[in-house]
Nucleic acid binder design. Structure first.
Lengths: 121, 121
DNA sequence: CTTGACTCCGTAGTTAACTACGGAAGTAAC
DNA sequence: GTTACTTCCGTAGTTAACTACGGAGTCAAG
């Protein structure tokens, strides 16, 4: 039920097969099972995991933190997972603050550029 | 009036001298003047510029975009600067959306972990 | 059972941003 | 002017994340 190959998983998450393989090696992801020949078999949970990891990466989170979290999730070690989740939350907040600060500076710059633009026509 | 050396500039922006030098080479930053011996002399504007660049970098903006923007600002080419500013704004919005999405997934994960935690005591 | 596409795995290359090294020369305090 | 620190500049190394290569093995459709 809902079995994915590596390439299907990659495609559904909008990622190259190489990236999936990289994540498998790092322990961010793992096959739900393997065929007799050693091929990875993935399920919907794996896809969700991959999507989560990608969202985090695109938000600027490092793979090292994500690796620790995913390993704890797979252990499963709820205590440790909670720790890394907290760290991630903090990271997200830090990023959001950085972005908010940047937005302010951007507005200031925009005003300045507009002023210059009007000053020498 | 408010003259900075490279090291003072770096220190005030919370950055290593190497980074400042890197930015100088890339054209993100430039000395207001140079001494007879070739030493860079910076002013308050340079510090503001450096702080802006750092905020952007920490928000996940690439140095290439920033380079184009800073060069336009220094040209000064208000038209082109506006273009890169717009691109930057877009990038900031994209990042903010990515972070918001991640936050949602994080909450879901947190709930799941908490549920597991309670499920096997 | 053959054929064509997919997968495995290790290894290697790329890019971005930063970090480090080292010697020649400048600067400033005495 | 000597001394101690700073700067210049080129070059080189590091790290993170991804991208690419290639040959051997596996799968599934006919």
């Amino acid at each position: 039920m809902n079995a994915y190959t590596v390439s299907r998983l990659a495609q559904d998450a909008g990622v190259s097969v190489h990236v999936v393989r990289d994540y498998l090696l790092r322990g961010l992801l793992r096959p739900a099972a393997r065929t007799a020949g050693g091929y990875g078999v993935f399920d919907a949970d794996a896809l969700q995991r991959l999507r989560f990891v990608r969202a985090a990466v695109e938000a600027g989170v490092g793979l090292d933190v994500l690796t620790r979290l995913c390993r704890a999730l797979d252990a499963p070690d709820a205590g440790e997972a909670a720790v890394w989740l907290a760290e991630l939350r903090q990271l997200v907040e830090w990023r959001q603050r950085a972005l908010a600060g940047l937005e302010v500076q951007l507005s200031a710059l925009r005003a300045e550029v507009a002023r210059q633009d009007g000053a020498l026509p």
